[in-house]
């Protein structure tokens, strides 16, 4: 009876089986490293945008899109890393934590780059609330002159006299949409500090 080794060698010769070229394996490994780096970079960009919005007081609602993009690409980076050689030497929690850390670290560096393009293309939902010329104002109600007039300080520390069609609570932080003239701000819409408050939109 033929040994398995002899049978296999005969089979290899009969079917003319050849080893897969080394370049294919190198390419495959490179692709996984490349995908890993791309995933990590997109994760870092998502982190950078969240930080950018936060620093510029643009975080008036949770940035779900960037947050989920960040999580998705972190998971993808872990998956791609696990496909590389010798990745098995590292436990999964370590890979996950390292990738999270790297994304946040890169993200905090990316923020130093010019994010003007993002600012230009970002949708209305990310509009800055510290932009009185364009009718956006965010800050705290300091005191009330009357049920329709209030003293207000914005995020830049400027004082405003608000003209409000509905009562405001002194001491609360709010986001306002309206028109600014000199130091007066005529309110058209009041939004809570967190969330869009869409259900409370003033008519």
């Amino acid at each position: 009876m033929k040994k398995v080794s002899q049978k296999t060698l005969d089979f290899i010769k009969k079917k003319n089986i050849k080893p897969v070229p080394r370049s294919i394996f190198i390419l495959k490994n490179l692709i996984f490293w490349l995908l890993y780096i791309i995933s990590l970079t997109i994760g870092a960009i998502s982190t950078a945008i969240i930080i950018f919005d936060y620093q510029n007081h643009r975080l008036h609602q949770i940035p779900y899109i960037w947050f989920f993009l960040f999580l998705f690409f972190i998971v993808l980076s872990v998956f791609n890393f696990q496909k590389t050689k010798k990745s098995y030497l590292f436990p999964l929690p370590l890979i996950l934590i390292s990738n999270l850390f790297l994304s946040i670290l890169f993200g905090s560096q990316v923020i130093k780059l010019n994010l003007n393009t993002y600012q230009k293309i970002s949708p209305q939902v990310f509009t800055s609330w510290q932009d009185p010329k364009n009718g956006y104002l965010a800050g705290r109600v300091i005191s009330a002159y009357s049920p329709t007039k209030y003293l207000f300080v914005d995020l830049a520390g400027n004082h405003w006299q608000l003209i409000s069609p509905s009562p405001l609570i002194v001491g609360t932080q709010v986001k306002l949409i309206g028109t600014a003239t000199d130091n007066n701000f005529n309110i058209k819409e009041i939004r809570p500090w967190f969330g869009c408050g869409c259900q409370n939109k003033m008519k």
Partner: peptide, 20 residues
């Protein structure tokens, strides 16, 4: 076991260039 070994040997042969 013979069949598994033969398949393993063929897989090893095909991937010989991937051996580090």
């Amino acid at each position: 076991a013979d069949d598994i070994l033969q398949d393993s040997y063929i897989a090893a042969f095909k991937n010989l260039n991937d051996f580090d």
